[in-house]
Amino acid sequence: MEKQTPMMHTTPLTADLIRGALDLERTERGLLPHRLPARARAQCADPQLALAESQPSGVRLVFRTRATTVELDTLPTKRVYTGAPPRPDGVYDLLVDGHPAGSGRADGGDTLTIDLATGSTDHTPGPVGTVRFTGLPSAPKDVEIWLPHNETTELVALRTDAPVEPVPDRGRRVWLHHGSSISHGSDAASPTTTWPALAAALGGAELINLGLGGSALLDPFTARALRDTPADLISVKLGINVVNSDLMRLRAFGPAVHGFLDTIREGHPDIPLLVVSPILCPIHEDTPGPTAWDLAALGEGRLGFRAAGDPAETAAGKLTLAVVRAELDRIVRERAAEDGLLFHLDGRELYGEADFAELPLPDGLHPDAAAHRRIGERFAARVFGAGGPFAADRG
């Protein structure tokens, strides 16, 4: 007898099925999650920021169902860098009742070609792709599909062989985190193995990840997004992007940090707020930015970065990671005298010299998958663990 294909249910993609996004934009082809609200996006025309905030790091579909088959139609935007090795397609991670249950990739999609020499871009439209998960248990279960952390993804359609419904609030604390490309998940293996996702899972928290590759720049609109987003715990990992963009000098950096923290505290006056300084990055420890492409590495077919500043320029106020760490430590110590829920963590406690010797940064700037796991586990132990800033019994 011919095996019959089970009837598939199409479920409208609505906000009650999506977590981790601050805004959902209806497009001609589907639903585009954003990690910054429309008001913030309207205040900055930087294409780097637009690309970063539209990549759904930490964004996931969450629903309850008896379905054994789940299909998600998406329109990814795949990046191609001229002169660099091909990038792998983005990964979709499946969790069932909180446990890893598979991963997949979607074919098709648009292509964004970026010329590293000129900075020019070319966008080529492509077809919708599908990621499919089968063989799920038929019992009622909570299903999560984590979208690729590094690939802009429009959601087109959700199909299952049984009805779905939203998952009620689990009562877990909401952790709102902001940082650079490392927090965004650059070079992590998949969306659930970025260090913030790993730390959230270990700490039992609901993650909203505002890690913005290249764009943790103390922008006021980002501070307002943090201020206006409901949360129980907030952390901000600051410094590396300010250095590698060569955006400001020491005179501006300190007041900018104060203003950033002031804005967050306007909306969250009495919850734990953690400031994390940069992890070890040898190229910028004592050498200012800007960061430049390593042309020798590109000539060998791999991505690499170098510090293009002059260490002597620190005397004139140019920033290095050493300077940034000292300033963040000073600012938090002074503010903590009046703010008992403000904390500081030196990023080298998460990844320091011994870690670099064992797990060096492959491109000189970003940790690999193994280092992401180490950073996430250490953050969970130091921050969510007993006596840490986010310990469950604090306050």
Rank of each mutant, 00 (worst) to 15 (best):
D294W: 09
G301D: 09
D294Y: 08
G309S: 10
W293K: 06
L303P: 10
G299N: 02
P288N: 00
L295I: 11
P290R: 10
G289S: 09
D294C: 07
D310L: 03
C281N: 09
L298D: 02
I283F: 15
T314C: 11
D286Q: 13
P311Q: 07
A297E: 01
A312R: 13
A296G: 12
G309L: 10
G289L: 05
A292N: 13
P311G: 05
A296W: 06
L295R: 07
L280K: 11
P282Y: 10
L295T: 15
W293L: 14
L298H: 01
T287V: 10
A292I: 11
P290C: 06
L280S: 03
D294R: 05
F305L: 04
T291V: 08
T291I: 07
A312F: 13
I283Q: 13
H284G: 00
P282N: 04
P288G: 00
A312K: 13
E300G: 12
A308C: 08
G299W: 00
A307F: 14
P278R: 06
A292K: 14
D294I: 03
G299H: 01
G304V: 02
F305N: 05
C281L: 06
W293N: 13
R306G: 01
G289T: 08
G301W: 03
A297I: 00
P290G: 08
A312I: 08
P278V: 01
A297H: 01
A297N: 01
A297Q: 01
P288V: 00
P288R: 01
A312C: 07
D294P: 09
L303M: 15
R302C: 15
S277Q: 05
R302Y: 10
G301P: 01
D294G: 08
A312S: 11
G304H: 03
P311R: 10
A296V: 13
P290L: 04
S277G: 10
E300I: 07
P288H: 03
S277P: 09
A307Q: 09
A296K: 07
D310T: 04
I283L: 11
W293F: 14
S277H: 07
D286T: 14
G301F: 04
E313R: 15
I279F: 08
S277E: 02
R306P: 05
E285P: 11
P290W: 12
I279S: 01
G289R: 12
P278T: 02
E313S: 14
A312L: 12
H284P: 08
A312G: 10
H284S: 02
L280D: 00
L280A: 06
